[in-house]
Design a protein around this nucleic acid. Structure first.
Lengths: 346, 346
DNA sequence: TTGAAAGCGTTACCAA
DNA sequence: TTGGTAACGCTTTCAA
């Protein structure tokens, strides 16, 4: 039994053992077509016998494509991006793809280099998780699209291939707060750039539709450092009875700030969050929020990349189809979760 | 100007343009040694001119090793593992390595296949993040070690290459609680298996050293679903004045459970957490905790893998050295953070 | 110091 | 349906 140096058997070993040509084994391995029944048998046996496993690197060199998916994001320790990554990984594993992750440096030149490196590893494609529009990730989107097939997960309609539907969430949660009798809803926003489909815009639209006054939104940071202070600040405003925070952590911070300032939540002020971070059910009071199925966004991203793979021809039509898929699915599996932090205005 | 089909220039193009052999370019690219000054110039110019970037896949095929690091974990949405991953990614990017992530299926056969797949992609090595000892990850450690160079991040002394030092944290936080006048400290543990260096063992040891009674620890789940109930349960016990929870989320849940049951934290009962999850400063009350520098664990893991690379020879001595490094650094950058959830017993 | 050439493990084209 | 063979882009050995 001859073997390649490496220790691992190669396709040549299989061919030899099965008394067929290397080409036949290769065909067998791939589509399976064009191989006679007996050969198939022999090859299968040989593979079994030798515990042969094809070398993905050699394959990648030959076809100029690695069975991998690159995930590009700017901050991995946020709940949403992480859950999306989890979804991407799960679906990729099911398909036998490797998943690589890269954070993009704030320095745009370095970030570009990272992207170049990724592209050189010739993945099936990449998925950009761009929930934080302040980062260099966003600035590089078109650069990345030029380098490899790209699925963008963001809430910017018309640009993104998988939409987060934060708009509808912001709209619904504001509507809910209004339905509790609050005259208006204040908003503490997380950093997003000024496109038209964020939770902030949903919030604004809901107020507008209800004819409610629209207070100036207050900007918080992703890392919630200032959420406390914002809560305290809100407590000094006379007319605040309901607050919609950009995510659950910010909501927790706002609640804390309000509490420290002597306000009771929800009796004096209702506070709602966003995302359904596990923490939202562990605080006092627990946080009313909007549930997003982040993992599913990940699944969908991988599927788009696969589709891309099989439909290389009409790339314009494809793009359109992707968009449709994305918007169609945007409403799935999202809903309001009412907990203790919100109540009817008395 | 001749070019390879792919569009990208190949090493051959560079050689031709620079009027040198392919071999020389290759030498130039790698160690840089064994190339004359003028050739160096010419090659550099050619590379610049053609925007040449070596193909990592072809290189990987030739040397039978890809410049990548595989990260293996069982749950990515926990704060600790995530932060560690962030550290790994950052350091890897600095070194030009790709990092791939894989969750291991609960089904051990499937998990094994995943590992085989990873090994076939011939990474520099892998790092196993094994904070959750109930998973299949733990069962496969020796299997993985056989397949590729491995750095294990866990709190199991003697097995792990990077130790989390949770033991010392558990010890210190318990000591602190005791120093506040509490007769003993109850413990809500997160899932870890029965080795001797977890936070739970640190807790036990601290009690023992102080001659304090050692209550039976209560097991919580990672996902904190039961933390609320455990808090409620603890409120029914007569002698509970201090609780050390396995992590900050569990602490939040316990605090909530206690609060719902009418106890005041910290006036009636002090509660401490672990990890310094950002959420710990956002709750009411904010949570006293133990800060771990997770990111640094990630850095260290990558460095071990690199060292591994350059010291293939005496692998036993190396192993020992790694262990030393790990333990030496275990105490770096960890410390108690006192917040509102703990107070002196009155 | 240099270059020619033989791999590395696949795929894919072209004949048979 | 088969098999021989030339790529794929790089490294590395061996001579010169």
């Amino acid at each position: 039994m001859v073997r390649a140096k490496g220790g691992q058997p190669s396709i040549r070993d299989v061919a030899q053992y099965a008394n067929v040509s290397v080409a036949s084994v290769s065909r067998y391995l791939n589509n399976g077509g064009g191989v006679g029944a007996e050969k198939r048998q022999a090859i299968a046996a040989a593979i079994e016998m030798l515990h042969y496993q094809p070398n993905p690197i050699a394959r990648a060199l030959a076809v100029n494509e690695m069975s991998s998916i690159s995930v590009i994001l700017s901050d991995i320790s946020l709940y949403g991006p992480m859950k999306i990554l989890e979804g991407i990984e799960e679906e990729s594993r099911r398909c036998g793809y490797l998943v690589s992750v890269s954070l993009l440096d704030a320095d745009i030149e370095k970030a570009r280099e990272t992207v170049d490196g990724l592209a050189r590893s010739r993945p099936l494609g990449c998925v950009i998780i761009d929930l934080d529009r302040t980062s260099s990730t966003h600035a590089l989107i078109s650069y990345i699209r030029k380098k490899m097939p790209t699925v963008l997960i963001s809430d910017e309609r018309g640009q993104s291939d998988v939409e987060l539907g934060a708009y509808i969430g912001g709209y619904e949660i504001t509507k809910y707060l209004l339905s509790l009798g609050h005259k208006t809803v204040h908003h503490v926003s997380v950093p997003v750039n000024n496109n038209r489909y964020t939770r902030t815009h949903g919030w604004r639209q809901a107020l507008q539709d209800a004819g409610a006054p629209i207070p100036e939104p207050i900007a918080a940071d992703w890392d919630c450092r200032e959420a406390n202070r914002i809560g305290e600040y809100l407590s000094t405003l006379p007319d605040v009875t309901a607050v919609f925070a950009g995510n659950d952590e910010v909501a927790a911070g706002v609640i804390r700030g309000l509490t420290m300032a002597g306000k009771r939540v929800p009796e004096d002020i209702s506070v709602a969050g966003f995302d359904d971070n596990p923490i939202a059910s562990l605080t006092v009071p627990s946080i009313t929020t909007w549930r997003q199925n982040f993992k599913d966004f990940g699944f969908r991203a991988v599927r788009l990349l696969r589709k891309d793979e099989t439909a290389l021809s009409s790339s314009v039509a494809l793009e359109d189809q992707l968009r449709d898929d994305a918007s169609r699915a945007a409403f799935v599996d999202q809903h309001l979760i009412v907990r203790e932090s919100t109540t009817r205005l008395v």
